[in-house]
Amino acid sequence: MSFKTILAGTALAFSTLAAGSAWAETIGFSQVGSEGDWRPAFSANMQNEAATYGIDLKFADAQGKQEEQLRAVRAFIAQGVDAIIIAPVVVTGWDQVLQEAKDANIPVFLVDRDVDVADKSLYVTRISADFNLEGKIAGAWLAQASLGNCKIVELQGTTGSAPAIERNAGFQAIIDQFPNMEIVQTQSGDFTTEGGKKVMEAFIKSTNNLEGICASFAHNDNMQLGAIQAMKEAGLNPGTDIKMVSVDYVPAMADALAAGEANASVELRSAVAEYIYPVILDYLKAPSDLPKWIVIPSDLHVAN
């Protein structure tokens, strides 16, 4: 390499640094992908809010692939960003790349899903909603609304996915407190409207028009919206005959709540930048030991 190239390179590096200094911090964000309604809204919120916090956000979409995500994180390390945010595609396989980030003195923050690493000091904290709590809030609402007396059909999310497991566990934990509350049918609707509709159609047939069923609990709104369609097509009145409670609070569910076709939805916030960025910026100013999980609160929305 000639002296000139080195000089040019150094000059370039300095100019990048100068340009970078217009921002307080440079943060790399590796996002899972853009599936569903919630995640694109989450990405957009993170990107739009970055400027208000004086953050230069480098956004990388992993398109649902972990190898893409590992590549993005290594690129962030090479660029020498001030902090890295990861929304992990999967929970395993993170030890090495997180060690690389630690060796480079770059703090890593997790959003959304957790990671499974032997050394918990490899990341600063996880900032996310608690799926289990969402299930509990839904269960608590239903316990109160039904006075603890309710046969429930459940529309599960994709089998084996973290939100499906946790929302089911949280909901179950609450209804276990009430001897007359019971899940009588449960099936996976794969988190989709189509899936929720198909499953509810089958439930309607196998329970003789939902005879004796008091509520439908869906792990997300899309499935519940499908279930509402299936019930209406079968001449039932969702929201009146059957109590409808689900998780997410997407715009279409807000409409359904207003129309009285659904009763309650636990909000999974997509506008979470206001919970994430302040934590990171405070940490960068003065590193401290944070709890390993900072829970973003979940609100309950009910039909009036």
């Binding site: 599936e35 569903g36 409207t193 189509e194 509709k197």
Partner: peptide, 10 residues
């Protein structure tokens, strides 16, 4: 059927 467009999962 679901009167919505859901390219990711339909």
């Amino acid at each position: 059927d679901t009167h919505t467009s859901d390219p990711v999962s339909v």
